[in-house]
């Protein structure tokens, strides 16, 4: 039974860590949405800021990937 409880803890932890991916999705959506809002107000400045957009998305995305990694580690490596 000890193994069962430990495994259960792993599953629960992995599932909780999976929430982080959703949070990262919110973050990425926020970045992209705000970019679009700004780009529609001032379309001429949009082209020069796409690099910043991608950097912002990448940073937000990376944290979601961290949580995904934690989930994977809990499932497979611990």
């Amino acid at each position: 039974m000890e193994g069962d409880i430990a495994n259960m803890g792993q599953f629960i932890g992995a599932g909780l860590a999976g929430i982080g991916s959703g949070a990262a999705a919110i973050g990425v959506g926020h970045v992209a949405g705000n970019f679009l809002a700004g780009a529609l107000r001032n379309p001429s400045a949009a082209a020069s800021q796409t690099a910043t957009l991608f950097i912002g998305i990448a940073f937000a995305e990376a944290l979601g990937i961290f949580s995904f990694l934690v989930a994977l580690l809990l499932m497979f490596a611990v």
Binding site: A58, F59, E61, A62, I65, F66, F68, L69, L72
Partner: peptide, 16 residues
């Protein structure tokens, strides 16, 4: 850390 895990994690996650 983030530089490497961002790339590796994205590719791994997609394939998985």
């Amino acid at each position: 850390v983030s530089h490497s895990i961002r790339l590796g994690g994205n590719i791994m996650a997609g394939h998985a």
